Simulated assay, not measured.
Amino acid sequence: MQNECVFLHGWGMNKNVWQLLIPELESEISMPIKTLDLPGFGDDQACPAPYNLANVANELAEKLSDNSTLVGWSLGGLISLYIAKHHPKKVAKVILVASTPYFTEQDTWSGIKPDVLKAFMSQLSANTNKTIDRFLAIQAMGSDSAKQDIKQLKQFIKSAPEPQEVALRTGLDFLLNEDLRTLFSELTIPLHGIFGALDALVPAKAVAKIQALNSNFNAHVINKASHAPFISHKSEFIKELKEML
């Protein structure tokens, strides 16, 4: 059986975000394609207890064929790296999409300001839908097609069940606190990344810092894209993804 190409979505989303991309990609590549919901998102409403990175990764790993290629967007990329390290037979290659082994800005690291993520965490308990809408707006910021990108993303996420509150809350905690830079530096499989030059969550200047951690890492930055390059710049995204596969 051919190795699968498995797509993992980002925070607050579900596997439907890939539905504009997959039909075109299926005609371009020979690998079988699979999209998975992260636990607690979309159709996967069951949440592991406790809801932590290890349990989320273990649950997803059970659904993977050996030697899969993981394409992880944002939070999905962070989880992909964890799976690659702890379930090495399952993962032959990781392609990060607007993702990073560590999301939080520090003095020597480019990322999203901790106060922004903390604000989302406090807003989440007051109004879940409004918090996700605000997160969507940040994801599309700077893209020429920002309004259209947000509209499409909203349509996709609304077409599946609402995420579980524990998955949303803990997912933000992953983005704020999980630091997989050492883990990333130790991976020996092929590692790739596709980024947006205008991304407010994973700034373009973070790419060089990620590359410095692992010589296996090969990255492409799409000029006018933001945090969802597979939607705003689909053709260029598919071209780069094909080369990486």
Rank of each mutant, 00 (worst) to 15 (best):
S65T: 06
W18C: 04
D66H: 05
R169I: 03
F135S: 03
I138S: 01
F184S: 02
K34H: 06
E24F: 14
L201D: 00
G142C: 07
N216H: 12
N214Y: 02
N3M: 06
N55A: 12
P161T: 07
S27G: 02
V71H: 06
S145D: 08
S122R: 11
Q2D: 07
G42T: 08
E59C: 14
N52C: 07
P50I: 04
V91L: 05
A208K: 12
P229M: 13
N67L: 09
F184V: 08
S68G: 10
P32A: 04
A46H: 08
H220I: 12
L245I: 15
K242E: 04
N129S: 12
Y102M: 09
A146C: 05
Q155S: 11
G72M: 11
T104Q: 10
T100A: 10
Q152N: 09
L176E: 10
N129Q: 14
H9V: 03
F237Y: 02
A49Y: 13
P190M: 02
E186P: 06
G72K: 10
A219T: 03
C47V: 13
L75S: 02
L168T: 08
C47F: 04
H233A: 14
S159T: 12
E59W: 00
F156E: 10
I210S: 05
A228V: 15
T104K: 12
D173W: 03
D199G: 07
P88N: 10
Q155H: 09
G72H: 09
I231R: 15
S235T: 07
V166P: 14
D44Q: 13
H227M: 09
G142Q: 10
F103P: 12
K234Q: 15
P39N: 12
V166C: 03
F7P: 01
A208I: 15
E62I: 15
A212F: 11
T108H: 14
L136N: 07
I231G: 09
V6P: 03
S110T: 10
A84Y: 08
K209Y: 13
A167N: 11
W18Y: 08
W11M: 03
A119T: 06
S30D: 06
Q211Y: 01
V116Y: 05
E105A: 13
N52Q: 13
I132E: 06
I112E: 11
T131A: 00
A219Y: 01
Y51D: 11
I132M: 05
E240G: 08
S185A: 02
D179A: 11
V91P: 04
T131H: 07
V17T: 05
K242V: 14
S99N: 01
L20E: 12
A98I: 08
P48C: 04
E236C: 00
A98H: 05
K205P: 06
L75E: 04
D66T: 06
